[in-house]
Design a protein around this nucleic acid. Sequence first.
DNA 1: GCAGTGATCATA
DNA 2: ATGATCACTGCC
Length: 200
Amino acid sequence: MTGMGHSSRPLSRAFFGRPADRVARELLGCRLAVRAGDGRVSRHMVCETEAYLGAHDLACHGSRGMTARNAVMFGPAGVWYVYLCYGMHWMLNVVTGPVGVPAAVLIRGVGGHVGPGRLTRALSIDKRFDGRPTVRPTGLWFEPGRLVPPQFVAKTPRIGVGYAGAWAEKPLRFLVDPETLGFGERVGQRNRRPPRRTEA
DNA sequence: GCAGTGATCATA
DNA sequence: ATGATCACTGCC
């Protein structure tokens, strides 16, 4: 959780009205701002996201057509798409791209809360945000953060979408190691040590 | 490794 | 109305 001393303008609808993979990548380093019940606002750096590209993406909910649950994915960008998974975990997504394209970005990790179901539980995010815009008055929005340089961004296949055939393999999950907020280390090199020297 | 959990959706 | 599925997590 970051400090509460300052705030900045929420990420605009234009930011989200672009392809989901681009938004997912650029959301890294931005801050998710949450207003709690007592009115206090906390901010959490986004460190893990996944892109769901649209109707052609077989891992995307929108690929099976519009239903009551996923209808907001077909609507304007910059709107929350929140749904319950496995009967107990709320998944937080933000709709991306033009109207008519069912695309979104799943927020999988922020600050110290890694895991899509864990972060929603920790921040008390649930169905009440579904279909609401990502603006300050809703109590949940994004603010720009620090730019994460490409060498600190890892890309992997998405989690839990094995049913999606070739689409399960695409590198649409984006991570930055939250431990390296100072960006002093590269992702994937955290355990690197200098080779041990032995005396002859 | 796998059970828990319940809304959602297709099928009827 | 019923049954399968599920963008996960926590404990074995």
